[in-house]
Design a protein around this nucleic acid. Sequence first.
DNA 1: GTTTATAACTCTGAATTTCAGAGTGTCAAC
DNA 2: GTTGACACTCTGAAATTCAGAGTTATAAAC
Lengths: 110, 110
Amino acid sequence: MDELDPLLHQPLRTQLVAYLAGAGEQTFSDLKRQLAVSDGNLDAHLKKLLAADYVAVRKEIGNGRPQSFYVLTPNGLAALQAYVQALHRLLPMTADGTAAPGLARPGLAG
Amino acid sequence: MDELDPLLHQPLRTQLVAYLAGAGEQTFSDLKRQLAVSDGNLDAHLKKLLAADYVAVRKEIGNGRPQSFYVLTPNGLAALQAYVQALHRLLPMTADGTAAPGLARPGLAG
DNA sequence: GTTTATAACTCTGAATTTCAGAGTGTCAAC
DNA sequence: GTTGACACTCTGAAATTCAGAGTTATAAAC
């Protein structure tokens, strides 16, 4: 059966990565506001994505207060695409969500 | 931002529910084989889905060894459809996974 | 120039979730 | 009636998730 990358298949991280993919480089505060999460929680998830090289940071100090800019890496983008494909194989999704009676039927013929 | 039902947005449970949606009523053993999980793990996840009324059981005893048949409830199906819709809003998915540069852009205009 | 307030992070530990294997009961073979 | 295989269910350890306390830095008030 299809595997779903556990690093991406988690509510907050899916949103995080989807947002980064769409909006490009974002600061910690931007992400915090957009996702409406606590500092600690955001930090923890960001750390996992950094450790997996799905996301990279660029830190700027000196110009104002210290700021970290987070971006999706090529590696992270590839993982996201693979994840979306896996989701598709699992859930033949139509845009309106009406996927009910014809969903993935792995073993009906064998 | 869009919310992803944490009950469904978990690797094993997503697969479980997707499989039930497609294949209909399944025994514990069928599920165990299809998903390749340990007994305890399958039991734990099934319990969560039962508690949420996403899945129902029908137990048969007497004819052979005891067997439990698991089905997706109407409630579970509705949750799955809502989940798929949320996924779509978050990740404008194409069938080949090429969703990269145009993904959900929440705040670019406001 | 020191104090107060605000923003941007990072760390710590508690609560929840996830998981594997031990345990219980049933049927079939011998 | 003992042995083996299957169908579950329970227990507790390991990992994950999360919130808030703590740290460093700038800006404003006095």
